[in-house]
Structures are given as C-alpha cells and as structure tokens.
C-alpha cells in the first residue's frame, strides 16, 4: 500500500452505521484504488473517545476519522443544517441538495476553515420518531411526556410542545423505556433501532421521523494529510466516498423496510401521524432553526443564516416541484 489510515468512528464496531458507512467505504476505496489505499476501520472508543473523532484528527493521533456534524452542533450551530434538523429535508431532497445544489461544497468550505479536508461518507434515511409506551397522535398528547431525545428536537419538544426532554445514556435507554421510566425515546432509523430491541420494550412506534428526516456522516482528515496523497489517488478516494454514500442510503432503505415488516408482524402498533400534525411539528422545527440562525447573525456570525436561506430555497423548490415523483406510498 501507498497509504494506510486507521479510521475510527463514533459508533461501535458492528453497528449498522459502522458496517454500512465506514466498512463499505473501506471496501470501496480498496476496489477503486486497487489496494493502493488501505482504510482500517475502528469502532467507537477504541483509538479515540467516541465523540472526539474530530479532535483526534486535529491532534494528529489518527490520520482520518468518521463522525457526524451532530456532535458539533453545540459548539457551532451551523452544523445543525448538515446534521439534519426537525422539519428539514428528507433523504431524497437532501442528498440532491448535497451533491447537485451546493450542499457538499458548503460543508467542505466549513471544514476547510477548521483545517479539515472532509468527504461525505454516509447519508441516512429518516429515523423513527419514537418508540413509546403511550400512543401519541396530537400535539396535546405530547404535553408532559418524558421523551429521551437530544439536540434540536429536545429544544423543540420543550419549547413548542411542553414535552419533557430527558437525558438517558445509551446503555440505559432500553431498561428505562421498558420499566416506563421514560414515556418515549428516539434513537435511529428503523434498521438501526431493530437490534437495540426498543420494539420489545414499548408497544407504540411513531412515524415519520420529523425530528430527524435524514442525517449525514463524514470522513475528515487534516488538509496536509490529504495534500500528501498522490494526485491520481485523490479522485478515486472521492469517488469511493460518493459511491459509499449512494450505496449506503439505498441499503438503509432496504433494511428499513425489512425492519418495519418485523415491527408490523409483531405486537407493536405503528402510529403514522396525520399530515396536519406533521406540519405542526415541522413548522416548529423550522421556526427553531431560523431563530437560531438569526441569533447567530446578531452575534456577528451571518454564515448560518446565509446557508439556511440557501437550504430553504432548495427545500421550497423541491416541495413545489416534486409532485411528479412516484413514491409508491400507501
């Protein structure tokens, strides 16, 4: 090999994100570069702390790392636009924005300012809005419910719907949901939740995932690490990243369908929210993020508002003109 990178991610080895994004990327890089570049994937917490992949790259401990902008939202809210936010674009529209309408370039520019070379490696399907011990069908139902969630959704739930966002560490979610210590939880897309067993702990499954319509993962390297790569290899690695994202999303769709079939066949009751309630939830999310970007602007950081405007413009165009698409939905 000419290049070997040990690449840790923020989820444990064996999880769907690990296999579907990082391992797939390693395989694609191997094929496209004909073995000249080796990516050695590592699960969370082995080489660097799970949530400090970006820091690990910055400190030079690892050459490259795989993680999600979600973990950078607290530090810089502009990341919420890339991480996926309540009321934002779903996977179809989002992946189009990323690759065709300037989303990717915006992300790469943002990372370049932090000294990173970024490659989008993984865009996901929509998450399950909740595994719940109580049925939720209207905004009134959410009031006072203890909801394990985090990030923007936690703020939307508290400020707009009177729900009670609750922090529960990953290892204890199952137990607390099963014992009804929390009323409902959100975690990941259907195929990601299946192995966590939440459907065995609580009866109701609430869809669609308004709170997290899609999500994005990236591989980051130091700019100088990237610059040192032979010029003929760079486009191959970039193509491998893009291929991985496309394959990864399709694989998520396929696995999600299987997961939902499992849920439907079992004892769970799947509640599909009606259009009016979905609009209400989405509107709250959009309101939350536009307030956030305004606050940033007032603090002298106009970048988030500008990016959001760009994002919203495309979302509106997509909404207006995508009625021609056949989605085969019941």
């Amino acid at each position: 090999q000419e290049v070997t990178w040990q690449v840790p991610t923020s989820v444990p080895e064996g999880s769907p994100f690990y296999i579907n994004f990082l391992e797939r990327f390693a395989d694609n890089v191997d094929v496209l570069t004909q073995g000249r570049v080796e990516i050695e994937p590592f699960g969370a917490g082995v080489l660097v702390p799970a949530l400090q992949v970006y820091d690990g790259v910055k400190d030079g401990i690892i050459q490259a790392g795989h993680s999600t902008p979600s973990y950078r939202v607290n530090q810089d809210p502009i990341n919420a636009i890339f991480a996926g936010f309540p009321g934002g674009m779903g996977p179809e529209a989002y992946i189009t924005w990323i690759y065709e309408e300037g989303g990717k370039e915006a992300l790469y520019d943002l990372r370049a300012k932090e000294g990173f070379k970024s490659l989008v490696v993984g865009i996901g399907s929509s998450e399950i809005m909740a595994h719940s011990n109580v049925p939720v069908k209207t905004a009134a139902d959410l009031k006072g419910l203890k909801y394990r969630t985090s990030g923007p959704w936690a703020e939307v739930m508290r400020e707009y719907f009177g729900a009670v966002p609750t922090v529960v560490p990953p290892g204890e979610i199952y137990t607390l949901l099963q014992r009804k210590g929390v009323d409902l939880i959100e975690w990941g897309p259907p195929s990601g939740n299946l192995p966590e067993g939440f459907h065995e702990a609580a009866k109701y499954i609430i869809v669609p995932g308004v709170h997290q319509p899609t999500f994005l993962w990236e591989v980051v390297l130091k700019q100088e690490t990237w610059d040192a790569v032979a010029d003929d290899l760079k486009p191959l690695i970039e193509t491998a990243a893009e291929l991985t994202t496309m394959q990864g999303l399709l694989h998520f769709y396929a696995e999600d369908v299987k997961a939902l079939e499992t849920y439907s066949k079992g004892k769970n009751e799947i509640i599909t929210l009606d259009a009016a309630f979905i609009d209400e939830l989405s509107a709250a999310g959009k309101d939350w993020i536009s307030k956030k970007s305004e606050a940033e602007k007032e603090a002298g950081k106009p970048e988030m508002a500008a990016l959001l405007a760009d994002y919203n413009t495309f979302m509106d165009r997509w909404s207006a003109e995508s009625s021609y698409l056949i989605r085969n939905q019941n």
């Binding site: 949530l51 979600s70 530090q75 936690a154 703020e155």
Partner: peptide, 10 residues
C-alpha cells in the same frame, strides 16, 4: 470556549 458535545445543557 469548548462546550459539552451532546448535552442539551452544553
């Protein structure tokens, strides 16, 4: 001025 990464309290 680094803040907690995933905490709502940050």
């Amino acid at each position: 001025a680094e803040v907690e990464m995933v905490s709502p309290w940050a």
